[in-house]
Design a binder for these strands. Structure first.
Length: 359
DNA sequence: AATGCGGGGGT
DNA sequence: ACCCCAGCATT
């Protein structure tokens, strides 16, 4: 790591914080630094961009203004509030953690690093963010922005996809973090990474800390951060069906409580490793209720996850409500609206509605 | 240390 | 297509 003098570290910190106070983005979670709000925003922002989070954060805070409102809300409601945001274990872990705060910490988000790190869903980044922003403690909060900014500032060439690299960056931040305004300092790094020190085409001309940047000086910004590539995603083939009972309700099913899209709802589906030849035969074999299926695909939907791809064929059918078995539900349109559906099944539903409206 | 876990945006 | 995003839990 490049050597920085004490003077330089201090100046860097001051310049960065001054830039932040002048140019910071106005974001809903920056209206005040109540720990609960900071916490909710940081969980939502994990692996999720600011523009995506804004409407979710506002809806969440109006649904659950205090920890008390959220702590014991039904799972269906908290998943519905998270619907479309992804990484659904975040919201379940958040509720587990907020119950813990309610019951073991008298409703006050703990201020010690050890205690806050012990909360479900709060890792090194989130702990540092909450402690610095809400409680003014000089703790590093190392995320993707910090990897990028500091790898360039100090020409750190450790592979950021390796777990142990985080400590290298924590030390780098700890050398420079503002002692009197750590929250502003950490948020300045986020804003800098998001708006100036971007992954592609960084705006070095606009950078408030350009003169401290070793990579800029060496003209090799594009080398940083160094990251080894990951393998490509697996392809899976699904068949799903929109099935109506005699009274016009729709057949739905809750997903298992663990794994992908845990506890969310779907239209009953089968999953195969290879493209499905006979849609109706394979589907009927996978769903043990008597169904009357149309032997024709309604259409296809594709969906990409971080680690796999779905190719979903959609068929339609009808059933007798008397044949309903354990684990499935028949719901009206109104009842369906309350249930959390992951995006791939929202796409399926939209295609169904579109096709039906064209008849 | 490696893998599973969503979904959208930018190039 | 590919990469990235205010990461964490589990194995």
């Amino acid at each position: 790591m490049a050597k920085w003098s004490e003077i330089e570290k201090e100046q860097f910190s001051e310049v960065l914080v001054e830039w932040y106070e002048r140019e910071k983005r106005e974001l809903p979670w920056r209206e005040n630094t109540e720990a609960y709000r900071v916490w909710v925003s940081e969980i939502m922002l994990q692996q999720t961009q600011v523009d995506t989070v804004i409407p979710y954060f506002e809806r969440f805070m109006s649904l659950f203004p205090t920890m008390k409102d959220f702590a014991y809300a039904p799972e269906e409601q908290i998943l519905k509030a998270w619907e479309g945001l992804g990484y659904y274990s975040r919201v379940r872990n958040l509720q587990t953690a907020i119950r813990e705060v309610t019951e073991a910490y008298d409703g006050v988000v703990p201020q010690s690093k050890e205690a806050i790190l012990s909360l479900k869903g709060v890792g090194p980044y989130t702990a540092g963010a909450i402690l610095s922003i809400a409680y003014n403690q000089p703790e590093a909060a190392v995320d993707g922005n910090v990897y990028r900014v500091y790898s360039r500032l100090m020409r750190i060439d450790d592979d950021i996809s390796k777990a142990k690299t985080r400590k290298v960056f924590e030390q780098a931040v700890n050398q420079t973090i503002s002692q009197d305004k750590p929250g502003a300092f950490n948020q300045a790094l986020m804003d800098l990474g998001a708006t100036i020190c971007t992954p592609k085409n960084p705006k070095c001309d606009m950078c408030p800390v350009q003169k401290y940047c070793r990579a800029y000086a060496e003209n090799d910004i594009e080398k940083y951060p160094f990251k080894s590539k990951k393998l490509k995603t697996k392809q899976k083939y699904l068949v799903t069906a929109i099935i109506q009972s005699n009274d016009g309700r729709f057949l739905v099913q809750q997903r298992p409580s663990e794994g992908l899209l845990a506890n969310l709802w779907m239209f009953p589906s089968i999953e195969e490793e290879k493209p499905v030849e006979d849609l109706v035969e394979s589907y009927q074999a996978g769903v043990s209720m008597p169904l009357y299926l149309n032997n024709q695909s309604l259409g296809k939907v594709k969906h990409v996850f971080s680690h796999l791809k779905w190719d979903v064929e959609i068929i339609t059918g009808v059933m007798d409500e008397a044949d309903l078995i354990e684990g499935y539900r028949l719901v009206t349109l109104e009842e369906m609206k309350v249930l959390p559906f992951p995006v791939p099944y929202q796409k399926v539903w939209q295609l169904y509605l579109k096709t039906r409206s064209e008849l």
